[in-house]
Computed example of a mutant assay.
Amino acid sequence: MKKPTILAIDDQLINLKLLGKLMSQEFELITAVSGFEGLQLLKNGAFPDLILLDVMMPELDGFRVLEILRKSPVWNDIPVILLTSLDSEHDEELGFACGANDFVSKPFKPAVLLARVRNHLQAKRARDLLRLNSNVLSEEVLRESAENRAIQKACIHALAHLAEFRDENTGGHLMRTQHYVRILCELLVDNDLYSEVLVPDYVDWLVLSAPLHDIGKVGIPDAILQKPGPLTVEERRIMQTHSARGREAIERAETDIGQPLTFLAVAKDIAKWHHERWDGSGYPDHLKGEEIPLSARIMAIADVFDAMTTRRIYKTAISAQDAKRYICGASGHYFDPALAEVFESGFQRFDLVLSGFL
């Protein structure tokens, strides 16, 4: 096993010889007779496990050498024991302030110095091992985090595609509404609205979850879902169950796994409540105002704008301008007034997204 390397820096040769005799059994000793020579050895590639540094040296004393070491990204972690005949409390405090790991007064007791050296080498090995484990763990966590995020995205897309298979118009609708949700979030943050909620992670999950807002339509009969004309009162009642069915479907998926999934929390809210209205006239729970989760209020505008501006089996499309007038006119009735206002201010971005998909 390789011996640990000690660099001894002292301007007195007799002290270096004494250290060499003391250390040779356990350690590989390299020496320097000045601060400049010691730093030059380090610059030339020497990398000791510990440094024994005399304080009282001409030209470049030990305190100054220590300051240089601690400012170096390469050498700042090497343990340094100061050796000095100075024994005032001020000198000891100055040594520790400069970054010394220990302070041993001359003349030193050989057994005491050896014990100090062994202790600091053992502490450094422990720090190095901890740092190595931490780096490995960090890399593993980052890799697992990226893998988990990819799996979560895949789960959401797989669920969303279930609704897409039932409705040929759904695919484009899901993609566009994701863009609209992102734009609304950015506009709100830019205007310092709901910024305490719309932190980056939340926005990412909201955008990612947007395609699940109509997942409950999987449970709606084709005769209703694909009906080319207006729905009857009973058919409309059945159609409106898709919001509650959507949340239930996601909850059943969590039950199968055996625990609620944080990344699906937003999805459950938008699935169930994106048809609620600001004035309480929506469904399924007739929530009112800020009783409606912010995610669902954002989804409501994105969903309505896209539904109005694209052709469906049961209706023709209206212009983006007409849809804007409808949404802004329903501010405070169907939609959160703050959301309707930022929608109007950023309308051009919605129009560009719509034009890009048509």
Rank of each mutant, 00 (worst) to 15 (best):
H173Q: 08
R70S: 13
Y194F: 10
S345N: 06
L52S: 03
Y326K: 07
V199T: 10
V197N: 15
A338Y: 03
R311W: 10
Q240C: 12
L60F: 00
A300L: 04
P73Q: 09
N76K: 05
H286N: 09
S355C: 13
T316M: 12
N191E: 10
L174V: 12
E93S: 14
C185W: 02
F103W: 06
L113R: 03
P284Q: 10
D91Y: 03
E344S: 14
A302E: 11
A150D: 05
A296P: 00
I298K: 01
I68L: 09
N44A: 11
Q12A: 15
A97H: 05
A163M: 11
D269E: 13
L184N: 06
L69D: 02
R118T: 02
R149M: 12
T84N: 10
M239S: 15
V199H: 04
E28K: 00
D279I: 15
L294I: 14
G62H: 01
A249C: 04
L130M: 14
A307C: 11
I238G: 04
A210R: 05
D336E: 00
G20M: 05
P58A: 03
F305E: 06
H242L: 09
H213Y: 04
D351W: 14
L225G: 04
E235D: 01
S319T: 14
Q321K: 11
A296W: 01
M299T: 09
H173R: 01
T255V: 06
R127A: 14
R236C: 15
V342F: 00
V141I: 12
R116H: 07
M299G: 02
P211Q: 08
I270M: 06
K17Y: 14
G20N: 05
P230M: 01
E26R: 10
I78P: 10
P211I: 11
V207P: 02
V104T: 07
A302R: 04
V136R: 14
E92V: 13
A115I: 02
E344C: 11
I14H: 11
Y180G: 07
G216E: 09
W278D: 04
D49M: 01
F47H: 14
V181G: 07
F305L: 04
G346M: 04
F305K: 00
P79A: 00
D351C: 14
L18Q: 05
L114N: 07
V112C: 08
L162S: 13
E291C: 08
G356D: 12
P110L: 03
P337F: 01
R252E: 15
E59Q: 03
